[in-house]
Amino acid sequence: MARAKIKRGSTHVDMTAMCDVAFLLLTFFILAANFKPTEAVEITTPTSVSNTHAPMKDAFTVSVDKDNRIFLNMTDEIKGDVFDELVQEKNMKVTPEDKKYFMATGFIGVPFNQLLQFIRIPSDQLKNIKLPGIPADSTNNELSEWIRAAKTAGMGKKLNFLIKADDNTKYPAFGKVIDAFKKNDEYKYNLITSAEDVPPGTPLYEDNLKAQHK
């Protein structure tokens, strides 16, 4: 007797739809990603319970690394104006090309007298060079001059002063940055930190709970 043949179904699944979805999501995430600007040096920020996001508009960021060197970052909206202001104040001789280089650099990490050479260094080589950082001593406080230039250039705008320091930065280095800001009558700063959970049972934790139930 002939056995009844069972028709074998194909195990192939049509992957086209899944592929479509995967690449749609991929496109979305690529577009939504805001790429990190070139960091001066690696900085591990301390954690805090603060949950406000760091302001990114008109931001003037002073970074202090673990060797207590000071670096400067500015957003593009104010960068050009700050450079013009500084050139005027210091009577530097610059060409339009210099400004183009300046706009392209991600951060500033040298004293004024090396600035024009510094901005010509391609960013991929910066990692190999030991940068001196911006001086902020009482005798030669260039950081304070940068802040003054930024304040003059950003007149009418609300500048956000951010301070980003490493876990292991010594407190006096941070104090120097604060002093430079104070010299320019700036008393409000944003300290960049990473988020941390509020420990349970503390007053802040209970306040947050109450706010949630309202």
């Binding site: 406000t52 996001h53 760091a54 604060i178 104070k182 009558d185 930190t193």
Partner: peptide, 15 residues
């Protein structure tokens, strides 16, 4: 993308 979100802590210093 999600890991790089930095938060900020407000600090006001006295004159």
């Amino acid at each position: 993308t999600t890991v790089t979100q930095a938060t900020a802590m407000k600090l006001n210093m006295p004159k």
